[in-house]
Amino acid sequence: MTMPVIGAAPSVALRAALQLYPERYRRERGEELAEVFADTTAAGGRAAVAREVLGLAVYGLRVRLGLTGASAAGRLLALAAPMIAGAVVGATMVPWLATVDRTTRWLAWDDSLGNHVRAFAPPVAALLLAVAALLGRWTAVRATALVLGVIGLSQLGEAVFTSHFDLWWSGYIGMASLPFVAAALLLVAAPTDLLPRPTLRTAGLVLAAAVAGGLLEAAQNWDDTTFPLDRWWVVAMLVAPLLLTFAALRGRTVPTAVGMTALVLTGPGCVFNIWREAHGVSNLLPMAVPAAGLLVLVAVAVHRYGRRPAVAAVHRTA
């Protein structure tokens, strides 16, 4: 075996990448990883070394965050990825189509290139994302989801870092933009080796999620700043998906993935609307604390209820 070809730099980079792994993993596998790294980069140039270091660093982060293909969280994210991708498409296209008239008037008033980019970048990115998801091109899915996430983040940044900061306005922009930031992060976090192949089932899942995401976005009516939030909508849009995610405590990943995908779209809007309807945090706490307590109790009950079959299964196999 030989060491990497371009002097000390790869060793420094390799050490930095290995530092990203948890100490126990590094102790058990660090030397082995370094040996394989040395062999794979022995005949490669700087680009090969950089790719290997990046790959090692990314996997180190995954191990540290518990987001590998071997972890339950990783499997859950991979399962949810087609749903999240589809939901993002629906949640982008429905509001855009619903406000085409207003966009047209806006562009007639100011037809600068920047405005055209603002108007058309989200739907174009969403359509590219849809095509990539249908073809199972997950790198392209992640890239386009990141574009939408960055657009959302920039909109939120504009709202927050304005000269006259307004919490209400920031929350209002946040409820529309944060779902895309969250979706991009979840898609990037999904382990690549578990992401599904482009089968009819995957395509159906993406399309169904696009329809569902569009409907959820329309149901939230986020573009109307005047509507009073009906509390039953909160139950449907926030508590119901939250309860679905509790299925993870029983090892059931499909309902958890569905709940998580729905929460990505509805969570920010519901939280904002609850805060808005409560007229401040001081009014919100007396309502939120018992509700949170109740949810914790439900989670504990689900967890205990779910453990019994597993214990029984162990006894059966013993």
Partner: peptide, 8 residues
Amino acid sequence: RTGTLYGA
């Protein structure tokens, strides 16, 4: 790549 291999 090494990272991909050890992930698998």
